[in-house]
Amino acid sequence: MTSVRGHGGRGVVGIAAYRMRVIQAYFVVHLRDQMAYLGEVALGGIILAVFLFVLTQLWQATFRFQGADTLGGYTLAQVIWYLVLTEAFITSRVAFARKIDTDVRTGDLAYALVRPGGYVSAHFGAYLAERLVRFAFALLVGGVLALLSVGPVPVGPVPLLVGLAASLVAMLLDFVMVLGIGLGAFWIEDTSSIYLIYTRVSMILGGLLIPIDLFPDTVGAIARALPFAAMIHGPARLVLSSGLADVSGLFTMLGGSLALAGGLVWWEYGVARRRVTAQGG
């Protein structure tokens, strides 16, 4: 969104190509950075393992106590694999709103804006690298735990690939939303509590801990009308389903939400940039 004239050739295509190269460059640098600190990423797996262990115990007790083979159309094994997929999405989140928040409050944003490549492109490249490494690691840890506790579940290659593609779009939507929250620092002192609320609301209404099919009807209807269900529940449900039912609805919701959130954040970024004031020092 910063000026790229002179860097990317001519027209919209040239600018887009230049942006892609910037994103790719930041992606590669941050991917190497993540690989250099794999130990830190692995430590993050401890809490994921604890969380999945506790939830596995909870759902095992629930199935036992209900005396049912399936609940809401899910077997116990499917619920546990569902949790692996939703947890992988949530625990791979990158809290870069805090970085934007700090940049705004300290004035570092003014320096970042004049760097070639663009502030948002730089954040997106870094975000994607960190997020994908964390996501892959969470899937690995969660997958091993799920295999040990409930064994494998049948998963078709097409639902798996389409579900992962939906997760990628959901990550992009998450990026846009978190960017919007971080830019809120232009108007309020500290955006960390807004980010916290965003993560918690999306966890619940996204069906992180309970598949939305098991929600009470009214709450389930509200959850399905919001983008969080498409971001978290949708891809997990798709991977575990035998076909591609509702896939168009899922991508329509993700795409529509992305267009709406993208438009709003684009406008917010434009307004925010006009509020940047250099204070010297």
Partner: peptide, 14 residues
Amino acid sequence: RAAFFSAVLGMVIN
């Protein structure tokens, strides 16, 4: 003050 109360409120909501 604003940061204090937003942190408190954020945690209550969490």
